[in-house]
Design a protein around this nucleic acid. Structure first.
Length: 178
DNA sequence: TAGGCCATCTGGTCCT
DNA sequence: AGGACCAGATGGCCTA
């Protein structure tokens, strides 16, 4: 259940894990440090590192918040960053579709969407079409997320749910519906 | 052991 | 000038 097993002690852990201030900074360190200019530069760098660390922490917090509002699967381990973003995209798309269909005066039955999509209606998120972002059209014609993102080809394979459902790209939105 | 994921450091660029 | 943002590099941890 611990989504961020490392989050709390990330700072101390991180500085221990990677290059601590005392530790020589890998291969990039150069120059003949020691002069006052070097000290000022180093102080500036240290401050910048601290800000960057905080920035990434806030980014992770936001990601964690996002994980919190997504449907949770107790049997699943923590979603990775990329999975969280893709999942959220699919989730939003699915909710939009549900609203759209409800607005069309249909029953709003989610199975309608299921049938429509599975029989050539809306594009399937599980397909390898990646036009959702470039189409600029309504959400109904935009596939949720291309499952075969070139950026992270392996990210979906290890998480079956991203491809398990041809409509939502993840497990059922409402448990028990199908 | 290889590969994936992650946190951190770092230098460059853009913005205020 | 200083902060925010970004992307590359690096190394640790974990799992198949």
């Amino acid at each position: 259940m611990d989504f961020f097993p490392h989050t709390d002690d990330e700072d101390s852990l991180g500085s221990l894990r990677c290059s601590s201030p005392e530790q020589p900074q890998k291969k990039r360190r150069r120059g003949r440090g020691g002069g006052p200019v070097q000290v000022v530069k180093k102080n500036r760098r240290v401050k910048a590192n601290d800000r960057e660390r905080n920035r990434m922490h806030s980014l992770n917090d936001a990601l964690d918040t996002l994980r919190g509002v997504l449907p949770a699967f107790p049997d699943e381990t923590k979603l990775t960053k990329i999975e969280t973003l893709r999942f959220a995209h699919n989730y939003i798309w699915a909710l939009s579709e549900t609203i759209r269909i409800a607005d069309l005066g249909k029953t709003g039955d989610i199975s309608l969407l299921l049938n429509q999509t599975r029989h050539g209606g809306a594009p399937s998120p599980g397909s390898d079409t990646c036009s959702w972002s470039s189409s600029g059209s309504s959400s109904s014609s935009s596939p949720p997320y291309c499952a075969s993102s070139p950026g992270s080809p392996a990210a979906q394979e290890d998480r079956g749910f991203l491809q398990q459902d041809p409509v939502f790209g993840f497990r059922s939105l409402v448990p028990g519906i199908y």
